[in-house]
């Protein structure tokens, strides 16, 4: 494993994050604060508790997941799409690097950035609500796994995308709706039985539920199912990336 090359990619990508600090970090934090104001304060005032948890605190894990999924996907997809778009990918391909090393560099940087933002949002949320974390290590581990898995998904999207519209397509049309319908702002038990059952086909439900369990020990699905879901997703993404690099799909003619 060529760690020097990996760290070069990683640092180059992190430099991009810090160069664009405002849009990288401030804007997701700002939009989360807005969610708190709207859902936590305005609407939350009418909903006292969900499953015994104050509504303001109840939505924190969902908000963090919403941001993590969006950020991990968009950072990783942009990170690899940009060199493809401007042509600098020639250097990655001609360098003495294996594809595994390229993936570790780009996905590692995107996951790190998503993790940083999620921790900032968690810290911000303590300004609005009282938050206690029942299982902090599990919470962190689950968060990191999610960051990595969705950065891998983003990497796949970045390789697949042929233009900037396609880059936005999956985050906007798939991920955001799945998060909203995956119980980010409600417990699926509050839904009519039919829709509660349908929700169990939404993979993001398992992520939010598992993450929420780490905070409140309350969940829509068993924790084991959440862990299994994230591991399956992670394996799936790794498999697709392996296939992409084996065939040179969308990278090498």
């Amino acid at each position: 494993m060529n760690w020097r090359s990996i760290s070069s990619i990683y640092r180059f990508e992190m430099a991009r994050t810090f160069r664009t600090l405002t849009q990288s970090i401030l804007s997701p934090v700002l939009s989360t604060v807005l969610y708190f104001v709207v859902f936590g304060s305005a609407i939350g005032g009418r909903i006292e508790t969900v499953e015994g948890i104050p509504y303001g605190a109840f939505i924190v894990p969902g908000l963090v997941m919403l941001t993590v999924l969006q950020q991990a996907v968009s950072n990783a997809s942009f990170g690899i799409y940009f060199p493809k778009f401007i042509g600098t990918i020639y250097e990655l391909l001609s360098a003495p690097l294996s594809f595994v090393e390229i993936v570790i560099g780009y996905v590692g940087a995107a996951a790190t950035k998503a993790l940083m933002i999620s921790l900032i949002i968690l810290a911000t949320s303590t300004l609005f609500v009282d938050l206690s974390i029942a299982h902090p290590f599990y919470m962190l581990g689950f968060l990191i796994l999610t960051c990595i898995s969705f950065a891998l998904l983003g990497f796949i999207i970045g390789i697949w995308a042929g233009n900037f519209e396609q880059l936005q397509l999956i985050p906007l049309l798939v991920i955001t709706p799945l998060v909203f319908l995956g119980g980010a702002f409600y417990s699926v038990d509050m839904l009519p039985p039919f829709w509660a059952a349908v929700s169990h086909f939404n993979p993001v439900l398992y992520l939010i539920s598992g993450f929420r369990w780490a905070f409140f020990e309350a969940s829509d699905v068993p924790v084991g199912a959440s862990l299994a879901a994230i591991m399956v997703f992670l394996t799936l993404c790794l498999g697709i990336i392996w296939a992409i690099f084996r065939t040179g799909w969308r990278i090498k003619p």
Partner: peptide, 10 residues
């Protein structure tokens, strides 16, 4: 510098 690092050189 990035190019040098990418090729794994110190």
């Amino acid at each position: 510098k990035f190019s040098r690092g990418l090729f794994g050189l110190p």
